[in-house]
Write a protein that binds this DNA or RNA. Structure first.
Lengths: 342, 342
DNA sequence: CTGTTAGCGCGTTCAC
DNA sequence: GTGAACGCGCTAACAG
């Protein structure tokens, strides 16, 4: 069962009593160089017949699709919001964004999605943390399709026209300092190895933060995946008299820690302080509220889209650097606010 | 700056020393009716030249795009996961899914997305809870593109070929009963009017559940949007000696309630019991863990895709009913497990 | 089995 | 200002 035939400009032209070229002119460039009368007739005919322009034919003909492809590891939480904002920015520029999820860093799926997108001849590509490695990426992308990376540090110039990176390292560095200032006598970063590069950035920032402290301070790095949360907290906090500061990979990790702490009746923020990254719904509405680094999605999305538009020849502002760093904003909540500060 | 010219079958044909039709045959139907030798030559040439089939040209030519459009209100949490699963199912059937977010039930954006999708001549459409109303929907969709609704109750046959609906009503009905059985002497449904139809389903289920109880029981319905959570809990629970049962619209709403309850030191589940819908990360990892209704995403996605495939003529199993109801599964956690039951 | 040819729907010259 | 004609890259009949 094939699709019912759709209305084409041929039929509109016939109905309006003009040629197809005229119809194309009117319906395309808003009726430049056409008489008012003609415009009216054409628009009326198009309206009545229910004409809808065929994207494929148009794209084929002018070798431009006005489509941007996005590949993200998933569509939940952070990735989902990013996708939404990118879509908005793309629309605003007259493009539309096709969103593909690579099912959590699966190289095979990622590769297939990339292939699909290139076969559609998208004008540009935005990828979040490529999983498949740059050798094969290069082979695929060398079609001439501009690629912008999000959270891709140190990629060679010949594969990506630019990158928009979140300032995770800096956020973690400052968090370390802040927790130390708040009187934490032991610091730990609870990461998530699964998200390779972005976990690494956080770790680097944490280590840099430790280095910069004026004093020696016990610290270590653990991974949420291989962590018995309650046992960890028991040992880390309940056993000692000091105040411990935790930097959590993101709000999800933070929630787990927080729940365990609540269960163990650990006093927050007296005995345990915590900072997370993402500042999503969880951080805002958990108890106690989690101090967290907010992500400026709009700016991030704008930069990514603008880098592509710039490559397309549109005149838009875009950072000069190939790697643009988007700073996060600290939102303080109860997990770091000492009671006597209220 | 236009795109660099891409390799076409013409060039592959020349390189392989065959005609373009042969190339098309080999590269398309996996080499049916072609000699081994020819296949090898063509594949080699294609490989070396970096040929990549042009989806637009193919689609234009055969009047079929193998593309399915999805419109959801957003891309976070439930919607994001739904999109991911739909994408998987679509891929498995040889289609790909273009995901569009309508920015939280915005009729204008939804309409524009629909328009874009139809201009792309997608083979089918999946929409989650249409916002713009069926009059205008009908006008748009009457292009002959099959439409499957997700969580669309009671839509006329001429606009959608079917619907896949989650059993919210039933879940809420059973929740009501369960809470009553657990000794709750007062019940309240905390909804979210913003999500019209799915809120309504829950409400109906709640009311049905109340009706079916053997005894009279105080109950009412409130909306999270216009709720001072702490004041609400104070009045509802702290002031009385009875045990209160709450059914929350989803895990997000539940988290807010839970946090307030924790803050007020309300004993859960002795004084307050709670059941939510969605069973996402929050329900699983909050403290105490929230009893919640799990959504069978895979089944839901399969049904939706299969309804479309069926319409396309593929022979797949699909429920006979136009509206297929997907049942939720109850996952019990601490918010309803009385201590003496451990 | 392979090649020839006629579209698919639209954008874009050019003449008129 | 308008219309005829060609091309975009590919598929689908047919011929051979």
């Amino acid at each position: 069962m094939s699709k019912p035939k759709q209305v084409t400009i041929v039929e509109v032209a016939a109905a309006a009593g003009v040629s197809i070229a005229t119809v194309s002119n009117v319906l395309n460039r808003g009726g430049i160089r056409s008489s008012k009368e003609t415009i009216r007739k054409v628009e009326l005919a198009a309206e009545q017949l229910g004409y809808r322009r065929n994207t494929m034919a148009a794209g084929l003909s002018r070798n431009k699709t006005f489509e941007i492809g996005l590949i993200v590891p998933g569509l939940t939480s952070y990735y989902g919001r990013l996708a939404e904002h990118l879509q908005i920015e793309a629309h605003q520029a007259g493009y539309h964004l096709s969103v593909f999820s690579s099912g959590g860093f699966d190289p095979a799926i990622e590769r297939r999605n990339l292939e699909v997108l290139l076969q559609r001849r998208v004008d540009g590509l935005i990828c979040h943390g490529l999983a498949m490695g740059m050798e094969s990426t290069r082979a695929i992308v060398n079609s001439g399709t501009p690629l912008v990376l999000i959270n891709g540090w140190g990629w060679p110039e010949d594969i990506a026209v630019g990158a928009v990176n979140l300032g995770f390292a800096e956020a973690c560095r400052q968090s370390t300092k802040l927790l130390a200032d708040r009187g934490c006598e032991s610091l730990v970063y609870v990461g998530s190895k699964h998200s390779k590069v972005i976990d690494e950035q956080r770790r680097l920032g944490f280590e840099a933060g430790i280095e910069q402290l004026n004093r020696q301070i016990p610290h270590h790095i653990v991974d949420m995946k291989e962590l018995d949360v309650e046992a960890f907290l028991q040992e880390e906090i309940a056993g000692q008299q000091q105040r411990v500061g935790i930097i959590a990979f993101d709000d999800h990790v933070a929630l787990k820690l927080l729940s365990a702490a609540n269960k163990l009746r650990i006093d927050i923020p007296e005995r345990l302080q915590m900072i997370s990254i993402n500042n999503n719904y969880i951080a805002m509405h958990s108890y106690p509220g989690i101090s967290s680094w907010d992500i400026p999605y709009t700016l991030q999305a704008q930069m990514a889209i603008h880098k592509l538009l710039h490559k397309f020849g549109h005149s838009v502002e875009t950072g000069e650097e190939r790697e643009f760093e988007v700073p996060l904003t600290f939102i303080e909540r109860e997990t770091t606010q000492l009671n006597d500060m209220e």
